[in-house]
Design a protein around this nucleic acid. Sequence first.
DNA 1: TCGTAAAATTTACGCGCGTAAATATTTGGA
DNA 2: TCCAAATATTTACGCGCGTAAATTTTACGA
Lengths: 343, 343
Amino acid sequence: MSDSKIKNMEGFSAVSGISRPTLSKYFNDPASVRKSTREKIEAALEKYDYRPNIYAVNQNRRQTKNIGLVVPNLTDPFFAGIARTIEGLIVKAGFNPLLLSSHGGPEQELSNLNSLRSIKPAAVLLAPLGRASLADQVATFAEEVPTVLFDANLEGIGEAFFGSDNDQSINLIVDYLCRSGEPPVFFGMKTPINPNAYKRQSAYIAAMKRLGHEPHLIQVDGEGWNFEEIGFQEGAKLLTGPQLPTNTILCSNDRLAIGMLSAAYENGIKVGLGAQATLRIAGHDDHPFSRFTCPGLTTVSQDYDAIAARSVETILALIDSKRGLKGREEALFEGRLEMRGSA
Amino acid sequence: MSDSKIKNMEGFSAVSGISRPTLSKYFNDPASVRKSTREKIEAALEKYDYRPNIYAVNQNRRQTKNIGLVVPNLTDPFFAGIARTIEGLIVKAGFNPLLLSSHGGPEQELSNLNSLRSIKPAAVLLAPLGRASLADQVATFAEEVPTVLFDANLEGIGEAFFGSDNDQSINLIVDYLCRSGEPPVFFGMKTPINPNAYKRQSAYIAAMKRLGHEPHLIQVDGEGWNFEEIGFQEGAKLLTGPQLPTNTILCSNDRLAIGMLSAAYENGIKVGLGAQATLRIAGHDDHPFSRFTCPGLTTVSQDYDAIAARSVETILALIDSKRGLKGREEALFEGRLEMRGSA
DNA sequence: TCGTAAAATTTACGCGCGTAAATATTTGGA
DNA sequence: TCCAAATATTTACGCGCGTAAATTTTACGA
């Protein structure tokens, strides 16, 4: 590679023998130039290291190639995982993902959206905080920038929503728990941030009734995203308190369940399916760590490959079509039962 | 807020009654204009919603306000946590953090650096993959862009390195383990990605010798970042294989330990300090989940607040001074023992 | 009140690239 | 071989802002 520094497209035009407008076309879409010129350009790119100045590019393009990706909390491996999957899909589509985490705070969520606004993204994929989200302002944003929601829905906001079918997944695990032992109580937070938690609670009640059992809700206090801690603290209270109507607890999500498993262990309560076990605990989400809890956590996995794929697909269609979809799209994907040792 | 859309600084100059060059000064540094004009500008900003086009700004500025932040794997909550801390510090300093994850792959690491290059960052904070990093190319990058390494060192690359004092922290936990029970064997990977793993191994050997014990290394196969899985698989082999010389295992990091705890549980081996326990397991790093394992994982926490603070401090100094530091800076921070139930 | 330093305004240019229009060249099939 | 369609080149302008130089206005102390 020659080391003569090329500072702009004009310079690269000189050394490559291709006119600047043609180069501009090439960089916008390599397929838009004739094969022979494309090869000439690529040969020159091998020889001279040049890349268009992205600031100049984006200043002039009607539409940037940026796609914003906002998740509620990157510290949660669940979101880290889905973010990674989505990033990969965005890159594969020739766009540039910009990953931001709201760190559990609605102000940060808005600040993320505002940062994105000044980056003029072609579109945004948003997994909102949920109940805590400042819905009005998120809605305003979504009217200006094509936005697709995933994981958690904000009613009517954005062009589409893709998430999990909580009815199906909760049915699945309630069925399993009832079939294999005592019907479960449902352990969740009193005022959960995540709208999925509400849906799961309702789904639990419906599933129990369908099976002819009395639903039993345990709703604990606690704010924030420290779910393991909440599961631990409140789980300890629960397990050392008055006798439950059953030996089976279905937690609203895996992180609560992980905390509760820890509480059970601390209190000498054996969890699992064996003869000596006196408690069964199940979760929801198939958190990356659920395979390694003691015992392994029985849970239901979300089909987040499908959620990711569909979200990106839709956002790309949205970008292509320039104008919004006809009506707000919504799709829920089914979960799969992950049977492990805890229930 | 009036809704007359202002599309550029000239328009905002018109409605605010402040000349464009003065506005430009203000946006670069609000303190650089007289208080009275600053107030006029800010009053106008309240009224008319205008923000400079960041692409135009960055095209013309000698130096952008971007600071790149590259971590090896965001799926690991440890890195997600430190990334979050560093992001906060960067924002507080008036810069714009760009977070990228290498997803455990050296190609991705380079591709991240290349993405950053075209963003013309003022500086980059890099937690390299370690052994897997393509050192030559990372070095080339670091010569072009002011770079500070943290967490894992690449000898001689970048302007500075900040990490943990593995000698101190391993000493701390080996001391503790020997003091409170049988001396530990060291469980790690044969060819670890992370250079810290090598340092910890050496530190373990030195600590054991210092205390007059025979070091005993267990080095297992395994590639990639699936540490829990490796800890689980290899832990199972270890625990069901020939008798160990001791009942105490010190793992190279918490994620291995978490996997091993799971393997112990599966095999009916009781871990902990109690009378019925036959195995002690300790880790290193104080992973966010280590509090919730069963039993809680005894480990040593890294002072990553200090590492983050010092890294950002240095990168800001580097940006200020324009030219590099006098000599490569290095500092190691001490760990703290976290005693829990597992050892 | 005046004088001077500090700050704001006016004017003007350049950054690197997108893009449009007119023109020239190449391509591939009849 | 020729011709129309496809593609490339030439020329030129604009994007929104940084920044420099010359000039005018403002602030503030003696």
